[in-house]
Nucleic acid binder design. Structure first.
Length: 425
RNA sequence: GGAGAAGUACCCAAGUGGCUCAAGGGGCUCCCCUGCUAAGGGAGUAGUACGUGAGAAACGUAGCGAGGGUUCAAAUCCCUCCUUCUCCGCCA
């Protein structure tokens, strides 16, 4: 949610900033509603003050035996007026909230306008592996090594689902365990949230109303009162303190959670997205930081550093891209993607997306902190980053670390978790 | 899923339509007395949101789990919902 005050003060700058994301917004109507609403509030509050005053006098009149019929008549009319003003205010408020809730976040100043093509690669780590044999793609590798059973996954649940088997399951779980231990080392609190969340969480994270149709809703419930399967742990983590005022001395608060992510999108049947690149359910460890406003850039760098370090320690070739405004998700002011090289596809695929929402999510769900310096209540800055999405790492690992004989080398840091340093038939 | 009970401020808690625009206590903050400790006396303590102020102050409005309704007037009466506790049912 964008601060209404900011729009009142300087709607043109806000428009210009949103245009970087490709959102063309005209604030004139909103500002009209705002003006009308405030004048109604003034009027209705005057009337309410009058009603309060008269109400306090009524018991006195009654004691004195005065006739109150005329006063009641007058007060009834006043009450009707108050009710109708209140109704108009509520309607305006709803319209304004709806308008505001559909606006994307304002991108940071240094984030460039435009879409994907304006993304900037800011770091490349390692080299593209060279093979002196014909490398296989990850679908073949995983199938041949018995790591993943795509066919029976489809049998169980249809397209977009797969089964991890045997060493595949151990490799997947090894990644999760490895990430967990690294985050614990860094002092992050381990969270296992519910996977079924109520509507407010989707709204608070900024994913609704826009992406309501991209998540799985539980049957038989009305949407706004119902539950959906979380599309990322961020949706849960970012709402834990909704409506609360956090003691500023406790910031930054750092969390991570492991959950599967449930998404309808998968859709894409393009052949290059075969296998585990995009599924309806995938595993991810997610990091979230609640930060004081002035420290959120540092927190952002920390998350980028942590996510990169994980990929680097796995020994994978990857790059870090700073996304253009239009490629950041709607809620985010800045996003860096960590993209891992998939040899068979000849492209880099995202394994982590690190973002700073600034106060956008906190405004939507009312997460504030008391600033120890000023004593004022401020909206927290929320940041999130995958640390990491395991389902895309496995394709990268098996493809980048494959050998001529079809076996796959296990990244050293995972050996203790997997129990072997090589995966063979 | 069913039945019963409850939800009031940092905590406990009084309060079944109006001098209660929420009593009292605990805790906390400050002051006084005493001063090693212990004990005593007094004052303050509703956070927050919104509105009018450049802003602070100040004022107003809302607020007794949430949302509606009845009424001149609602913590109080009515309806719906949420949460907690107790019991029962279900438990792949």
């Amino acid at each position: 949610m964008i601060d209404l005050q900011l729009i009142r003060k300087d709607s043109e700058s806000v428009s210009a900033a949103l245009a970087k994301k490709g959102a063309i917004v005209d604030f004139r109507e909103l500002l009209e509603w705002d003006k009308e609403r405030r004048s109604l509030i003034q009027k209705v509050e005057e009337n309410k003050a009058k009603r309060n005053k008269v109400s306090a006098e009524i018991p006195l009149y009654k004691k004195q035996g005065k006739d109150t019929a005329a006063i009641f008549e007058e007060m009834r009319a006043l009450g009707d007026e108050i009710a109708s003003s209140d109704k108009k205010i509520a309607e305006l408020t709803e319209k304004m909230d709806d308008f505001l809730s559909r606006l994307p976040n304002i991108p940071d100043e240094d984030v460039v306008a435009g879409e994907k093509e304006n993304n900037e690669v800011i770091r490349v780590v390692g080299k593209k592996p060279e093979f002196d044999f014909a490398p296989k793609n990850h679908v073949d590798l995983c199938t041949d090594l018995g790591l993943v059973d795509y066919e029976r996954g489809v049998k169980l649940s249809g397209g977009g689902y797969w089964i991890y088997r045997n060493m595949g399951a151990r490799l997947e779980w090894a990644l999760i365990n490895y990430f967990i231990s690294e985050h614990l080392k860094d002092g992050y609190e381990f969270i296992l949230p519910p996977h079924q969340l109520s509507y407010n969480c989707g709204f608070g994270a900024g994913q609704f109303p826009k992406f309501e149709d991209e998540v799985y809703w539980l049957e038989g419930e009305e949407r706004k009162k119902g539950h959906f399967m979380l599309p990322t742990a961020e949706t849960a983590l970012v709402n834990m303190y909704a409506g609360e005022i956090i003691d500023g001395a406790k910031l930054p608060m750092k969390f991570f959670a492991y959950t599967p992510c449930y998404r309808k999108e998968a859709g894409s049947y393009r052949s290059e997205e075969r296998g585990m690149i995009r599924g309806h359910q995938f595993n991810k460890v997610e990091m979230v930081i609640y930060s004081a406003q002035e420290n959120s850039m540092a927190a952002f760098e920390e998350l980028v550093g942590k996510a990169s370090a994980l990929v680097e320690k796995l020994g994978l070739h990857f790059r870090v891209s700073k996304l253009a405004a239009g490629d950041c998700s709607a809620s985010m002011a800045r996003t860096y993607d960590i993209e891992v090289w998939i040899p068979s596809m000849g492209i880099y695929k995202e394994v982590s997306s690190v973002s700073n929402a600034n106060d956008y999510q906190a405004r939507r769900n009312g997460t504030r902190y008391k600033d120890p310096k000023t004593g004022k209540n401020l909206f927290v800055h929320t940041l999130n980053g995958s640390g990491l999405a395991t389902s895309r790492l496995i394709p990268a690992i098996v493809e980048q670390f494959q050998n001529a004989d079809g076996s796959v080398r296990v990244p050293e840091v995972l050996v203790p978790y997997v129990g072997t340093d090589i995966l063979r038939k």
